[in-house]
């Protein structure tokens, strides 16, 4: 493999890894604070992609312009889901929680099928097929934008959690919800906000994906699976872990597709995932 192909593969992997990272971030935040594995995360990504699509096709809003709107919509949706479903199953056995979010996944995927048919839909923007040539390496503009915005979002989210009052309250709740409640933190409210933020970050990912990818009712599954892998790779509940995991998976898939075959690119990530699980189950950044 000559070095240009190598560089190209690396760039492609990193760029898509940024999107994986923010999907994983949302998932990780929810798990880290509430201990809920959100099986319906893929459906949230799908909903945000459709939202972005309809903002474009109905109102002519560019996916990048409609990003805040999509994020807002997903945030509100998160609060609704938290209130109606997650709040009621927080103390249920793990398996019941799995079933509840699995039920939500099936419900939403089939709602999308019913409303919007299984057809693939995509958006054509002016920059959809543009690329920049950097010393022989082609960098796709929408993917580069997605990567940059994803990292920016991750930075903002990090600062929010590290510095603001609400961030401190979220961390306190994650550490010990009873102690947090005793300190006057409104834990149910924090849960709503966390679920909202988790979904909003997925919403941003969906909006960004729409600039270069297509949507259909079950589009979320493979992205969500990859996000689970990224989370576990980096360490469940770890912020830096989600980002590192996302980038690693992006690069691993990209190389897998070149070295072995595109059909097996997901196999690479699953195999890496199982190996990491078995050797270092707490993930690269996770603590035991």
């Amino acid at each position: 493999m000559d070095h240009r192909v190598l560089a190209q593969t690396l760039v492609n992997g990193l760029l898509i890894g940024g999107v994986y990272a923010i999907v994983a971030l949302g998932l990780n935040l929810i798990y880290g604070v509430m201990g809920i594995i959100n099986f319906s995360h893929g459906a949230m990504l799908m909903l945000s992609m459709y939202t972005s699509y309809f903002m474009f096709s109905l109102f002519g809003l560019d996916p990048l312009v409609s990003l805040p709107l999509v994020a807002m919509f997903l945030f509100l949706l998160g609060i609704v889901i938290q209130t109606l479903l997650i709040d009621r199953i927080l103390t249920a056995p793990t398996i019941s929680r799995l079933i509840a979010t699995f039920g939500l996944l099936i419900f939403l995927e089939n709602l999308a099928l019913l409303l919007w048919s299984p057809n693939w839909r995509c958006i054509k923007t002016a920059y959809s097929v543009q690329a920049i040539n950097l010393g022989g390496v082609l960098v796709s503009v929408p993917r580069l934008l997605a990567f940059v915005i994803a990292l920016l979002l991750a930075g903002v989210l990090y600062l929010t959690i590290a510095k603001t009052d609400i961030g401190i309250a979220i961390r306190a709740t994650a550490q010990n919800k009873r102690a947090a409640a005793l300190m006057g933190i409104n834990v149910p409210r924090i849960y709503k906000i966390v679920f909202g933020i988790g979904l909003a970050s997925t919403g941003i990912a969906g909006g960004l994906l729409m600039t270069f990818y297509y949507t259909f009712p079950t589009v979320g599954l493979i992205w969500a699976l990859t996000a689970y892998i990224a989370c576990v790779l980096g360490g469940l509940g770890s912020f830096a872990g989600a980002i590192a995991g996302g980038l690693i998976i992006g690069v691993a898939e990209s190389f897998g597709a070149i070295v072995i075959s595109p059909a097996f690119k997901n196999l690479i990530s699953f195999a890496a995932f199982i190996i990491v699980l078995l050797l270092r189950p707490q993930g690269i950044f996770g603590r035991k």
């Binding site: 249920a92 419900f107 999308a112 299984p118």
Partner: peptide, 23 residues
């Protein structure tokens, strides 16, 4: 008749049953 409706009902039923009878 309506593609996806029966699975929507399935999904909704799961959420309802789990919240009512977790065991």
């Amino acid at each position: 008749r309506v593609q996806g409706l029966h699975l929507m009902i399935y999904g909704a039923a799961l959420m309802i049953v789990v919240t009512i009878a977790p065991e």
